[in-house]
Amino acid sequence: MEQSDIKRLAFPRFTWIRFITAISRLVVLLLMVIILTVLNPKFLAPGNILNVLRQAAPIFIIGVGETIVILARGIDLSMDSIASLTSVVTATLMIDNELPFYAAMPVGLSVGAVLGLINGLIITKVKLPPFIATFGTWLLFKGLTVLWIDGRVISGFSKEFTYLGMGRFLGIPVIIFTAIIVYIIFRILLKHTTFGRKIYAIGANPDASRVSGIKIDRIIIIAFIISAVMGTFGSQLYIARINSAKSDFGEGFALDAIAATLIGGTSFDGGVGTIEGTIIGALIILLLRNAMNLLGISPYWQGLATGVTIILAVLGDTYLKKIAKRYEN
């Protein structure tokens, strides 16, 4: 084969439509930054920027888990209760059992993994649709937490633990570094491993993936375990920041994570989406909230704004896809 042939085959022709699709979210994000800066010059102050990033980090970390299951045509609605149950587990271990955080966190993560395993087993072995399975476990895990912990608020964590959530390293919140490490790990997992390839394949077409010999049940179970572990990890960092845990903690996590994933361009039909998109999605959600706070708009409007953004993002995607299809044909 000629060298030029290899190049031609390996690298698709540059097309505007592809380019626009790829950067559309980044453009939206930049536009938001510009508008916010115009409306309120304080927005670009380093303190505010770091604040936005710090708040976006847990949404991103939880969103990573949600992204993986949505890529594989699933969804994890139980994220809220996984977050509350595992954070309460982690918190009681540290407070009641006086375990150090480096022992309590892995135990919490293992409990998260078990919860993810339960989701995965219900979906693959009992064969319930992910929406229904995780809707059920959402209530189930929530019920467990409430029964167990009742109205108790657990607080007073060690300095070492809260450092993970509120501390700064070189003047930058530690949680931002954590998010960057999570990003690098999952970027590699999704783009450079056979596991990542299988996730995309299953999402694009589970039947064809099965014919190709991929053990789809196993991969889906692992995806739900990863999702729950990331949900746990994100919520541990969260309670480290607010320095308390209680049974209704974690409400809205699943919706934020799903919103970040969808705004980030991951398709509900599976097989299409990126981790980078989820970062942008988390940032867009946070910027919206930040903007409203800066502009003094009531927080009641925030849900509405997020909803409109999701709808616009998905609509925009569908529209761009249509154009791309016409163009390719």
């Binding site: 056979t194 390839r197 299988k198 394949a201 064809a208 099965r210 991929i214």
Partner: peptide, 18 residues
Amino acid sequence: EGLCLALSVKENIERASL
């Protein structure tokens, strides 16, 4: 059942051999 239509030719070719 044969193809992942949303994925590339490359990813379809290697799917059974990962």
